[in-house]
């Protein structure tokens, strides 16, 4: 079976520190997957490698069969944890920018979402609140028709109403061809939308299971399981 994302014995070392150890991942299309783990578990390193922002020390990772590079960047839409846009730009300039570089960018979708949130396209990012900036970034990222969406802490530091909007946007964007990989520690807020979860600890995969299976077998929520697993 062809996986959307696959890694084999992926390792990443920083000096003597093993950030990722023997990561073997199989991710299929049409899923919303939670990448969970405490700080230092290797989540950001894995995400950087997926996006071609870092190269493995050994092993391999492929997206749609290819090593991260220009071709994978065309089909992976990434929302980092930080504001990665030039703050001096106005919203419509950002729309132009994304439209220019990403063939799969759907400008009308973005404009619709922006107007739903009453964000004017003439506004400069610099003049927006942190929450609004994050929404703009999310809208830009979700307006692409990508095969893989990698969202790093998409709902951290956002008010509950915005959180709901973001989750509904992720759900509404769903299609059987694409997969959303969500990295977060606000588990209880998002576990209802997850198909599967990947628990990372000390740079290794603890397990990769379906949410339904965990709930029916353990009788617990993912949040509860997370607290238990990471207690010791």
């Amino acid at each position: 079976m062809e996986y959307l994302l696959e890694s084999n014995h992926l390792c990443k070392k920083f000096g003597s520190l093993m950030a990722l150890q023997d990561i073997n991942l199989r991710i299929t299309r049409g899923k919303i997957i939670g990448l969970l783990g405490p700080n230092g578990s290797g989540k950001s390193t894995l995400i950087k490698i997926i996006n071609g922002l870092m190269t493995p020390s050994s092993g391999e990772l492929t997206v749609n069969g290819r090593t991260p590079g220009v071709e994978t960047k065309k089909i992976v839409s990434y929302l980092p944890e930080r504001t990665y846009l030039n703050e001096w730009m106005k919203v419509y300039e950002l729309l132009d920018y994304f439209e220019d570089f990403y063939e799969d960018f759907r400008r009308e979708r973005a404009e619709q979402m922006l107007s739903n949130l009453r964000i004017s396209i003439d506004d400069k990012l610099k003049n927006m609140s942190k929450g609004t900036k994050e929404k703009v970034q999310l809208i830009l990222v979700m307006s692409r028709d990508a095969d893989l969406y990698v969202l790093d802490e998409p709902i951290g530091g956002v008010d509950p109403a915005a959180r709901d909007y973001i989750l509904k946007t992720i759900i509404g964007n769903y299609n059987e061809n694409a997969t959303v990989l969500l990295s977060t520690h606000l588990i209880s807020d998002i576990e209802n939308i997850l198909d599967e979860v990947i628990f990372l600890q000390y740079g290794q995969i603890r397990f990769h299971r379906s949410v339904d299976e965990i709930r029916s077998q353990e009788g617990k929520s993912i949040d509860q399981l997370f607290r238990e697993v990471y207690r010791c």
Partner: peptide, 13 residues
């Protein structure tokens, strides 16, 4: 800096 997250995820060499 942070803008690098955008620059290096653009589909360019």
């Amino acid at each position: 800096t942070d803008e690098g997250y955008l620059s290096f995820t653009l589909p360019v060499k």
